[in-house]
Amino acid sequence: MSVATLQSLFGYKAWANAELFALLAKVPSEHIVQLHACIRTLNHVYVTDRIFRAHLSGAPRPFDATNTEDTPTLAQLQADVQATDAWYLDYAAGLTEPVLGEVLDFRFTDGDRGRMSREEMLLHVITHGGYHRGNVGELLGSIGMAAPRDLYTKFLHQSEPARRGN
């Protein structure tokens, strides 16, 4: 995969997250149980993103599990996700093709050893987030709220209107 494609995918991820958090802020108070489930799911994504950020940067792993014991507020999680999305956008902007192929050794939170290329780690972060945004979309559907159209094509055409042609 090209560096340009990865940069675009991280732009898409940040855009999709922003759209989803904007909708979650509108969940009616009578659906607090479902909102809590959405927050827990997205917190898991955030924690996983931060763990892989540490693997990519050679920093100590910031979490020992794939979710936190305490549930953050929606506003706190949104701020944390925005900051992490910004880190990935900056990281992707500095990538070169040779760096993508570098293989890194790490440990999963369960203690098992892992070995992945930087490109594989970045693709995991992208696909993992998309999978769980879909889970949240299903939860929103169960309370009668339509999830945002989390589509890469929508992102591309919205961020680059010239792609629509004549």
Rank of each mutant, 00 (worst) to 15 (best):
T68M: 09
D90Y: 03
W87D: 08
D64P: 02
E69W: 04
A59D: 14
A86H: 13
A75H: 06
L95R: 07
A65F: 08
N67F: 09
Y88K: 12
Q76H: 05
F63V: 00
Q76T: 11
F63C: 02
L104D: 03
Q82D: 13
L77W: 03
A75S: 12
A83C: 10
D80S: 11
D85T: 05
L104S: 05
L56P: 01
L77S: 03
G101Q: 06
V99G: 00
L95C: 08
A65E: 10
L104A: 06
P98E: 08
L74N: 03
L104F: 05
V81K: 15
R61Q: 15
Q78E: 15
E69R: 13
Y91T: 11
G101N: 08
F63E: 00
L77R: 03
P60N: 07
E69Y: 06
A92K: 10
A93I: 03
R61P: 01
P72Y: 08
F106Q: 04
T109I: 00
P62Y: 05
A65I: 04
F63A: 02
R61V: 15
D105M: 04
A59M: 13
Q78A: 15
E69N: 09
P72G: 08
G58W: 05
A65N: 12
A59V: 04
W87K: 06
R107Q: 14
D105P: 01
V103F: 00
V99L: 11
G58Y: 08
V81W: 13
Y88F: 15
D85H: 07
A75I: 06
P72N: 08
Y91K: 12
R61E: 12
P72M: 08
F63Y: 15
L95Y: 09
L95A: 09
A75F: 04
N67W: 10
L74G: 05
A83F: 09
T66G: 03
A83N: 13
D85M: 07
A75G: 05
A86E: 13
T109Y: 02
Q82R: 14
L56V: 00
